[in-house]
Write a protein that binds this DNA or RNA. Structure first.
Lengths: 197, 197, 197, 197
DNA sequence: TATGAATGAGAATTCATTCAT
DNA sequence: GATGAATGAATTCTCATTCAT
């Protein structure tokens, strides 16, 4: 009984969130109206407020909830690998594919980052995410450097550069038509780690 | 006479533009009001319309005019150099310094890029700028590759990757405190070109 | 069985009413929401509608039901008294105490009276109450005048003046801190009846 | 030039204020919409905000500005009078006439007082006004008592009682039709001062 | 040219009421 | 009987743009 109702609620909530990603991403936060979200989700205007107290709250959920999914996929690293080079290339490929298939969501994230003063709460979360990512990558880089597979560089710098590169491509590929190019950037990304031969 | 008057006009126009960059960059287009611009520029809000027909027009000028300055500085390349490696490193350093000192303006540009559907006219211009930049860089990369100083890669890809990297750092450094880090990325950027030895 | 259930209902109904007095009195009719009443009464907001059809109905009950209690206490007059002066002073004392202890309720009543066009039904009831009060008082005043204890004045005028005075104090004491002052007004009120010596 | 424009502004502002008194008084603050005010004043909705920043600001002006006029008229007292009794009667008559002709405004004031927590700023001002009024009246009462014309009572209490009485009549006369009665209350009010003979 | 008053479309949010569970 | 999700009318306030002075 209650479960059924609760389930229905969750479904509806998810629908709102899904449509919000698209709308916020395309139109920006300010220029997306609650009415638009409601229409897209097939519910009445007032109902959006049943699920999200304010527009700001909705944005927060819209940004934060998918972030956890991204985190899960982005943080998969096999530190025990025999072949660091191989692991690194695989990791880059996974990351680039993730970025290339999350265009809409990432566009939204970049809007948030481009307005750092506006959504401070979100910015802090995104910043923490970034730090996490960098810290996850460092051990692998260190391993590669120890094994003489990678040039000696500050691992934090390398990880930061790599993450920046991923984001930068997303930004630039928003300008250009996005195509198979994405895959080509795997090699470029790899270079940032300073592979030796 | 007329010259004096004309000069005064240009000064005022410039003041509006300068304040617009800051305001649009910080508050975003929609959340910056003409009133705010007028206040910042020390004129009445009605006067803004004397210099710019609409808010959109103002944004266009705000984005496009500094772009020319950026272009000038970004496009300086000495193709005749004896030492491609040296020239490349100098170029990267100049570029990174330019990016690190243009934070406010670039934040504005990224807002535009994060909303590709919104300001199509501006997007086209920025896209053209990007293409220009890439095309300017290609000959130097080709020269380096021919001389055996750089790994053989698609020059367009390399140039694109490099430009993306610059933009990506700007994005990420907006998250992190911006500091001497910028300089450190010179080496990372250089790696993207695939230097041999 | 049914009695028990019925009793439980009455208890809940009373709880709603009690909380409504406080909330309507403090926040006004429009700015009190059914949700607030429900929260205060510890029930779900949907349940309020089980007990009161509409918000207006709730207000009516909130104003009218305590009025009967006030009526009972306000209308106690011993017409057969030997000493009119004594009876009058006692009556004033009882009335003033009642008013001083019913601040919250009276504040609500004054809100109703201050918006005569808004709740016409309630206003009629309050008006009838006022007329009743005046009519109840007249015989005592007449008796006092006949016995030469009170100055000859239109008894209806005197009663009206007295009732107005009570209400006026409530209003003014809302401004000032309410304290022992209330008791002091007994003498002032007495003067309105025109005591001789 | 500027004067003409400034004058026109003041006229329009006054029109808004005049209509606001009526509307707020009749419909209450919450149930008066800016649209209603705009319509009544014959201007567009948005223009109200040209003259008053917020609805709350408008209310404040609506309550406070007429208060100064009331103050002027209410505070006229000739302390040097030969005949305190006469002066007192005249004063009461003036006050009662003022109250009887300011019904609409006073109804608004009473709404404010009936919601003490809502408009704290206004309440403080009204409270200060009340204190002023009482303090102005005290010397005359003291004089009357010294001259043996008035019964010895705490002058502050008497003044407070008198002011409360005036307000109470306004409240009660809101219930009853307002008529010549007002004038009749002059004698009742006079009694509050405790005249001897 | 400069100013700022006037306008009104548009947006977020609130809330009484209804009604399915 | 109790609950709370759904609805949409209603309201305040914002702001680009126009235009008279």
């Amino acid at each position: 009984m209650t479960n059924k109702r609760e389930a229905a609620k969750q479904v509806k909530r998810k629908r709102i969130l899904d449509e919000s990603i698209k709308l916020f991403s395309t139109n920006g936060y300010t220029e997306t109206t609650i009415q638009m979200v409601a229409n897209a989700a097939g519910i009445s205007f007032g109902s959006v407020f049943t699920y999200f107290e304010t527009k700001e709250t909705l944005l927060e959920a819209t940004v934060m909830e998918p972030l956890e999914e991204v985190r899960e996929q982005l943080m998969i690293i096999n530190y025990e690998t025999e072949d660091v080079t191989e692991e690194l290339k695989n990791l880059i490929q996974r990351n680039i594919r993730l970025f290339s298939t999350s265009k809409i969501y990432l566009q939204l994230v970049q809007q948030i980052i481009s307005r750092p003063d506006r959504h401070p709460k979100l910015l802090m979360s995104l910043d923490a995410f970034f730090t996490d990512f960098v810290n996850h990558l460092i051990p692998l880089i260190e391993k590669g450097q120890k094994e003489g597979k990678l040039k000696i560089q500050d691992p934090e710098l390398v990880a930061t550069a790599y993450f920046s590169f991923l984001n930068g491509i997303r930004l630039t590929m928003g300008l250009e038509e996005d195509h198979i190019w994405w895959e080509k950037f795997i090699d470029s990304a790899y270079l940032l780690f300073g592979p030796i031969d």
